[in-house]
């Protein structure tokens, strides 16, 4: 009887432990954001044909076929604190990329295209010294927005002050047009290394 209980309990511990390992991708991802990053790195989904309107009024696709890496971050121009910080970080990343002469396009894409018109994109760009070359600010079509957010697994929730909170990150699209990496906005070294690896 005692031995039977011991064996059954041991089995339960093994099964339960295996279940928890499975649920956390081997203790590597406890949060949805961690799981998203592992999944993207593993699957590397092909980016659909998405067009965005840039601050200069031109239309660009997110993925290119010209051998460049594209770095995307989602923003909204009326953001008071966090995006201003991440905008500054994107500027710093741009400086690093220009310095190292890497073939990279950088896009800050608004997830609030109803409010963020081209003029809003221009003033956001001016505020952060985005000159359209290398780094530009862009807005998707309102009707395409939700599918874009779904594809990149961007969760946007309204805060109580008329703004939004979202899982801010730098998203990497490789020269093959695959969405292949998600990085913290200030992980400059990690991002430049990933860019070099993707080229």
């Amino acid at each position: 009887m005692k031995l039977g209980g011991f064996i059954l309990t041991t089995c339960a511990v093994l099964i339960g432990g295996a279940g928890l390992l499975w649920a956390t991708d081997g203790l590597r991802a406890f949060t949805a954001e961690g799981a998203r990053r592992l999944e993207i790195a593993r699957i590397q989904p092909q980016v659909p044909d998405i067009r965005v309107e840039t601050m200069s009024g031109a239309f660009k696709t997110l993925a290119t076929t010209t051998g460049e890496v594209t770095l995307v971050e989602f923003i909204y121009t009326t953001c008071a604190d966090l995006c201003q910080a991440s905008g500054g970080e994107f500027a710093e990343l741009r400086d690093l990329i220009v310095q190292q002469d890497l073939p990279v396009r950088m896009l800050s894409v608004s997830f609030d295209p109803e409010v963020d018109d081209v003029n809003a994109l221009i003033s956001y760009g001016e505020l952060h010294n985005a000159y359209d070359e290398t780094w530009t600010i862009a807005r998707p079509d309102v009707s395409a927005l939700q599918s874009i957010l779904d594809f990149f697994q961007v969760t946007v929730i309204p805060d109580n002050w008329g703004g939004y909170q979202h899982n801010t990150a730098v998203l990497l699209i490789n020269p093959d047009g695959q969405f292949s990496g998600v990085y913290n906005t200030n992980a400059y070294k990690e991002i430049t290394q990933a860019v070099k690896a993707a080229l």
Binding site: G5, F6, A12, L20, A23, T31, A32
Partner: peptide, 26 residues
Amino acid sequence: DVWVGPALVLAVCSILFWMLPRTLDA
């Protein structure tokens, strides 16, 4: 008696699972 241990383990592992932040998002 033999099932007492497994029952506790099941409950504890389940609680741990539901405590994961990614479970909450899921």
